[in-house]
Design a protein around this nucleic acid. Sequence first.
DNA 1: TAGATTGTTAATCGATTAACAATC
DNA 2: TAGATTGTTAATCGATTAACAATC
Lengths: 213, 213
Amino acid sequence: MSDRKISQAVISRLPRYLRYLGDLKDEGVERISSHDLSLRMHVTASQIRQDFNHFGGFGQQGYGYNVGYLYDEIAKIIGLDHKHTLIIVGAGNLGQALANYMNFERRGFIILGIFDRNPALIGKKVRDMEIEDISKAPDFVKAHGIEIAVLTLPKAGATEIVGKLVDSGIKGIWNFAHVDLDLPDVIIVENVHLSESLMKLSYKLSRGADSEI
Amino acid sequence: MSDRKISQAVISRLPRYLRYLGDLKDEGVERISSHDLSLRMHVTASQIRQDFNHFGGFGQQGYGYNVGYLYDEIAKIIGLDHKHTLIIVGAGNLGQALANYMNFERRGFIILGIFDRNPALIGKKVRDMEIEDISKAPDFVKAHGIEIAVLTLPKAGATEIVGKLVDSGIKGIWNFAHVDLDLPDVIIVENVHLSESLMKLSYKLSRGADSEI
DNA sequence: TAGATTGTTAATCGATTAACAATC
DNA sequence: TAGATTGTTAATCGATTAACAATC
C-alpha cells in the first residue's frame, strides 16, 4: 500500500485488469495468482503485484487473489461503483455513434443530452434524445450537474464551447477533437486522438514491427 | 542520428509534432527553435531535439528547424507520403461513423470496403460503398491487396475473422474491439479501446486530478 | 564575428523487474 | 506443517532532462 501519486502507466493498466478479471469471472474462475494472471495478460507477475499494491493489499499469501473481490475493488477504484452523467457536444458521425453505443450505459455512464451547432441537425432524434442547439449546452450542464462532456466536434470552435462548459461546472472532458485543451488543472481531460492513433499504425507499418500493447 | 529501436514513447509523439508543425505552417511561421516549440507544446526542448535526432538531424545550429521541411520529413517518417488501403470490418455505429469521416482520406487512408455479418445491414449504402457480407472480406483483402483492417465489431467473433484476414495478407489492424489480439509479430496492431479510455477519465475524476497528455 | 541553437553525451529520474522475508 | 504466493524492498533498466561542445 502506498499513498504516493499513481503514475499514468498504472492508471492505464487498470481497465485492462478489469477486463481480464471480468473474463475470469465469466469463466467461473474463483481465484488467481499474480503468476497465472501474468501468463494470460503477457505482463510480469511483479508488475501486477506492484500495481495492485498501490491501492492496498487485495491478495493473500499462499492463496492469490479472489477474482470476484478483486474485480469489485478495481471497479471501485476506477469509479464504476457510481453513475456518471455525460453530454455529447458535436452530433456528427462520431457523436451520434457514441450516443447510440449502449455499452457505456451498462457501465454507469449515462448520456443525458446531445448538442450541435448545425441547424440542420437540431431536432433530429438520436436514440431517445433530440439534438439541441450547442448554445444551450452550458445551461444544461448547470441545470443537470453534468459531470462529463464528450467533445466530438471539429477543432475550430472547440476551445470556445469548452470554456463555457468549464464555467458551467463541467468536471471532465472526453476529447475527440484534434486540439490540446489548455484548462485549469482541476478539469480532467482524456484525449482520444483517432487520427494520431492511425498515424502510429502507419508508422509501424512503414518501419518494421515493434512492440505494442 | 541513431539506428536504435525507436521507443513507443517517441512514436506516440510524432503525430503530435506533425500537428503542431502543421499549425505553424498555417500561421506562416517559417522556422522554429526547439525552445520555442517546447513552449507551445509544453514539453522540454531537450526532448524535442532527442526525438528528432532519432531520425536524423533536421535542424541547423544557430537557426533552428525549418517548419516546412521538418513537417515533410516527419510526415514521411510516419508514412503519410504514400497511400494506405483500408477496409472496415463491422458496420455498426462506429464502423459507419469512421467510413463517413472524410479526413482520413485527406491523409491518404483510402477506405475501399465495408463489411458486416448482420444480413439486415448488407446492401445498405455507406458513403459510396455498399456494406458487404463479412465472409467476403478475406477474398477482398487478397484481391485488392488491402493493407489495413479497421476492426469495429463486438469481441465475440473478432478473433475468428482476424485470423482469416491475416491469412489473406492483411498487414495491420486498427482494433476497436475489446480484445487483445494475439497475432504473429509481423502483423501490426494498434488498439483503440474507447471504454478503457472512458474508464481512465472516470478514475481521474474519482481521485484528484493528475497530469495527462 | 558573436550569438544562437543544434546534436549528443552525461546525469537524473521514474518505472519495471527481481528477489525474498512475511505469512496464509 | 510445508508449500505457495503475497507485499515490499532492492536492483535494473529505460526514458527524460541537463549540460555543453560543435557549428551555423
